[in-house]
Write a protein that binds this DNA or RNA. Structure first.
Lengths: 122, 122
DNA sequence: TCATTACTTAAGTAACGACCTAAGTAACTG
DNA sequence: CAGTTACTTAGGTCGTTACTTAAGTAATGA
């Protein structure tokens, strides 16, 4: 229950993989401003619709995006939970790293103090 | 100067791609506890050394890890700057999304209030 | 100096990813 | 009911990724 947390079936692999492509990040950027149809999502990109839909599938598989079809229009929206999962992993690494540096700092200070005392003593 | 920020040559593509593999995330986890040699890094994984070194190369290309060789030992350490860049992108998306939801909430409240006034008026 | 250790280089393979075009289908529109 | 719109499906290409084994090289310890 540490690395696997509350993922409804979308491990970090999929989230980070989804975010590793500029087109997909662009789509997430668009969706963070509000829902959009597939063609609206596709519009800024110089690629075929099927390619866009494939990117969309990757985003959905990762849990970053959900979509539903009404009539002939599929509306996509962001789901920030997957984003939070990724953020959380990153933060844990940064936290541990910072903690370690702090401890190292403490240790060095102690050493320094000890060295000073040693000098005086001698 | 927006998406390219203060990356010394490692765009988000590389960072997210590096993090999309469980082995590499494991290596970052290990390194967030402190520096390690290549063989130390390789130890928990059931794969050949060259494979581990390839993963390491991906991590270095992304800026997540730096390493230097002294004698015959290469020592690897985490560099949290790349991690921060990824975190920053994620946070910006979350921020925009939350902001939008707030605005939407406000709008709905206004509508509701307007509806009530309308009712009374009628 | 000779064996070990700690990587490094090279070369190959099988699977995957990011596209494409062409040909659907299903829902509106006139 | 014919045409347009908004996707969807199918199939193919080509580059990349995640490994592998085999054969280096360069530092070090006995």
């Amino acid at each position: 229950m540490q690395t696997q947390g509350a993922n409804h079936g979308a491990p970090l692999d999929l989230v980070f993989h989804a975010l590793s492509d500029a087109t997909r990040r662009g789509m997430v950027e668009r969706l963070s401003r509000g829902p959009a149809s597939v063609s609206e999502l596709a519009e800024p990109f110089a690629m075929s619709l099927p390619a866009v839909v494939q990117h969309l599938a990757v985003l959905e598989a990762s849990g970053l995006v959900r979509s539903e079809k009404v009539g002939r229009v599929r509306t996509c929206r962001m789901d920030e939970k997957a984003l939070s999962a990724a953020e959380h992993w990153i933060n844990e690494r940064k936290r541990l790293w910072a903690w370690r540096l702090d401890r190292l700092g403490e240790f060095l200070e102690t050493q320094e103090a000890a060295a000073k005392r040693g000098k005086r003593k001698k």
